[in-house]
Write a protein that binds this DNA or RNA. Structure first.
Length: 283
DNA sequence: AGTGTATCCTGCAGGC
DNA sequence: TGCCTGCAGGATACAC
C-alpha cells in the first residue's frame, strides 16, 4: 500500500519520463476516481506542460506550467504506469485514467479497487489543500521537539495519531507499526503519555524507517510497483508488520497482532509493553 | 476531542 | 473444481 516511501519512489521514477512533457489529452475511463467534474479535469490538464513531479505525504503531485497541481492519491492499489503508446501500457490491468503525452507516450492511472483519487487544484487551492496536511516527517523542520508538540496534544493511541495525515503527512500503517517497534512503544500508548525518551526514540525511528524504505524503493506487499515495474525491496526488512506469530528480532518473543481503529497493528508483547493492564473480567 | 463503525471496491484465501 | 464468505484497508462521513 503506497505510503510516503512508495509515493517518493513513484515520483522519482516518473520524473524522468514526465517532467517537461506536455499532456495532450485526458481519457477518463473510470469516472469515480476523478474528483469533481471530469470535463473540468480534462480541460485543466489538456495542453499543459508538467514542470515538476513531486510528492506531498502519500500523494504524487504533478505541478503544471500554470502552477496548478494534479494530486494523485493512490489509495490502496493505485499505480501510475507509463507506456510507449497512446493506450494503457500492457502492465496496466485496471486503467482508470489515461494521460496522452506529446510524442505519443501515455501515463495510465491504474487502480484495481479504485480507492485512489485524482484531483486538479489551482495554485491557490493547492496551497490550502497542502496546509491541511501535517509536516513532512523527512523534512529538516520535523524535529524531535515538533513531534513532541504533536504527541503532547493528543490522548489518542500513538498509532492512530501517526496515521492521521493532518498531523504528520505520509505515514501509513506499515511504517507506523515498524517505527513503534523500533522505538519500543506499544501502538496503543496514549500519545501524550509517551515520555521524553520515547519521543526521541520515535522521532529517530520514524525517520530511519522512512529513509531506509525510500532507499529500498518502498515495500511491495501485493501489487505495488515502481514505475519501472520493480518491486519495493523493503518487505524482507519488515521487523513487525505482518509477522504475527514470528519471533521478535530483538527478544524472540512471538509478535502479536492486535486490532484497533479498524486496522491491524503488530507488536512485541515483551519489548513494547501495553500501556494499561487488561481490565479484569467479570464484575 | 475522542472513538467506533460503515462506506467505497475487488482479489484472494479459506472452508466445505 | 467451484462457489461462498470474509478479509484487507486509506480516506471520509457520521453517530455517540
Amino acid at each position: 500500500m503506497p505510503e510516503l516511501p512508495e509515493a517518493e519512489t513513484i515520483a522519482r521514477g516518473l520524473a524522468g519520463v514526465l517532467a517537461g512533457k506536455t499532456i495532450r489529452d485526458v481519457t477518463v475511463l473510470r469516472e469515480d476516481v476523478v474528483h469533481g467534474s471530469q470535463a473540468r479535469f480534462r480541460e485543466a490538464l489538456a495542453d499543459r506542460r508538467v514542470s515538476v513531479v513531486g510528492r506531498r505525504g502519500k500523494n504524487v503531485v504533478l505541478t503544471l506550467d500554470d502552477a496548478s497541481r494534479v494530486v494523485v492519491n493512490l489509495g490502496m492499489t493505485g499505480r501510475l504506469v507509463p507506456g510507449p503508446g497512446s493506450g494503457p501500457a500492457p502492465g496496466s490491468t485496471h486503467p482508470a485514467v489515461l494521460l496522452h503525452l506529446e510524442g505519443g507516450g501515455s501515463l495510465a492511472y491504474d487502480d484495481v479497487r479504485r480507492f485512489g483519487r485524482l484531483r486538479h487544484l489551482s495554485a491557490a487551492e493547492w496551497t490550502r489543500w497542502s496546509r491541511r496536511l501535517g509536516p513532512e516527517p523527512l523534512s529538516r523542520s520535523f524535529t524531535g521537539r515538533r513531534l513532541a508538540g504533536i504527541l503532547s496534544r493528543s490522548r489518542s493511541p500513538v498509532r492512530s495519531l501517526l496515521l492521521d495525515q493532518r498531523r504528520i503527512a505520509g505515514v501509513g500503517n506499515i511504517y507506523a507499526v515498524e517505527a513503534l517497534w523500533f522505538a519500543l512503544i506499544h501502538p496503543r500508548t496514549p500519545a501524550a503519555a509517551i515520555g521524553a525518551g520515547g519521543v526521541t526514540r520515535l522521532h529517530r525511528s520514524l525517520r530511519r524507517v522512512l529513509r531506509a524504505a525510500v532507499q529500498a524503493g518502498g515495500t511491495t506487499l501485493r501489487n505495488y510497483r515502481a514505475p519501472d515495474g520493480n518491486e519495493g525491496r523493503f518487505r524482507r526488512r519488515l521487523a513487525a508488520y505482518g509477522r504475527a506469530g514470528g519471533p521478535c528480532l530483538r527478544c524472540r518473543a512471538a509478535i502479536e497482532r492486535i486490532v484497533f481503529g479498524g486496522r491491524s497493528a503488530f507488536c512485541c508483547p515483551r519489548c513494547q509493553p501495553a500501556p494499561v493492564p487488561l481490565p479484569a473480567e467479570g464484575q
